[in-house]
């Protein structure tokens, strides 16, 4: 289970990158690319191996005060991203 003190890291199989021409973040991997939507990009760019889940939640709640509490959305995304193996957690 994901909890707020875990530090997600991006799987070294993937590279996160802003693509100006596509105006979005993408995840690059061998011979492939995933285009991230706006909110996925906002979360993924905060995953630097140092930020804890709670830091990501606080940062985004501060950044988007009109969006309501984003906690549940962020947990949902992290869970889906974990299943896709974009992320991992050191135990």
């Amino acid at each position: 289970m994901i909890n707020s003190s875990l530090q997600p890291k991006i799987n070294p199989m993937f590279r996160l990158q802003w693509e100006q021409v596509q105006e979005c973040y993408v995840l690059l991997y061998p011979e492939g690319m995933v285009k991230l939507n706006g909110s996925a990009g906002e979360i993924m760019q905060l995953i630097d191996g140092n930020n804890k889940v709670v830091d990501i939640i606080n940062t985004l709640n501060d950044k988007f005060p009109d969006a309501g509490d984003l906690t549940e959305d962020i947990y949902e995304f992290l869970s889906a991203a974990g299943e896709k193996k974009w992320l991992y957690y050191e135990q």
């Binding site: 990158q17 693509e19 100006q20 021409v21 596509q22 993408v26 690059l28 011979e31 492939g32 690319m33």
Partner: peptide
């Protein structure tokens, strides 16, 4: 510059 991102 045109947006190509995967290069083989």
């Amino acid at each position: 510059a045109m947006g190509a991102v995967q290069l083989g």
